[in-house]
Structures are given as C-alpha cells and as structure tokens.
Amino acid sequence: MNSIDQMLEAFYSGSIGQPELESLFDAFLGSREVRERWATDAAVIIPLAVARRDRRMRTRAAHRGWRVAAAILVLVVSVGSAVAYAKEQQPRVYSTDAACDVVCAVQWLDNAVETAL
C-alpha cells in the first residue's frame, strides 16, 4: 500500500488489524523523507483510526439492533393482522335472543328458505 489512505481503508474494512496497520505505518515511515513528514502524525493517526473504526462498529451494531427490532415488530403486527383477519372471517351472530347461536340461526334460515313464500 502506497498511501496512508489505502492503509486506513484496509483497516476500516477489516482487511488488516491494528498490528498490521502499525507495521505498514512503520514501513511507510521507513524513508527519511516520509519520516520527516509523517512521523509525528502517525502517533495521532493510528489511535484516531482505531477510535473511528470502533465507532463504526458500534454504529453498525446499533443499526443491526434497530433492524432486528423493526423486523420483530413487523412480524408481530403481521401475525396479529392475520389472526385478526382470520377471526373476522368466521361466522358470528348478533341476536336479540341470546340462546340463538350460529347453529340455531343457520337452521332457522334453512327452515325459512325451505318454506319461502
């Protein structure tokens, strides 16, 4: 890797770990010119990179948690809707005579239809 950006990208993506990042930085800082330019910054960049990676992982975990919660909510609402819909499709009787249930009402209807005007 020829640039710090590439090293950091590899680190953020999980391709390399912190020891590898530090090794790459040390190799990168090998030449005198680079060392003069980046040596003091390396001591800042690596801890910042670690902190940023950790924050990213915590955020991803948090998002995952919300996604799981949302999926569970959708599942519960879907199941609840399906159960409510299935119950709503069942025959029900509303009657002024409490003794007349669905069976009684259907028999009454059949008798009435059979003896229709």
Binding site: E88, Q89, V93, Y94, S95, T96, V102, L109
Partner: peptide
C-alpha cells in the same frame, strides 16, 4: 329492525357461507 315492536326475534349472521359464497344474513 331489531328494535321494532313487530319483531319478536332478530338475528344477524355475519360471514355466513352459502354454496361457498360469503354473505351476511338478517332474520
């Protein structure tokens, strides 16, 4: 009609099936 004086008994069947057809029935 269920509260009408002329009506002795009123029944409303919701989701009754007749030959596979779903209807509501008032008696």
């Amino acid at each position: 009609y269920s509260t009408r004086r002329e009506v002795e008994t009123a029944v409303y069947i919701k989701n009754h099936r007749i030959d596979g057809v779903k209807v509501d029935v008032t008696l």
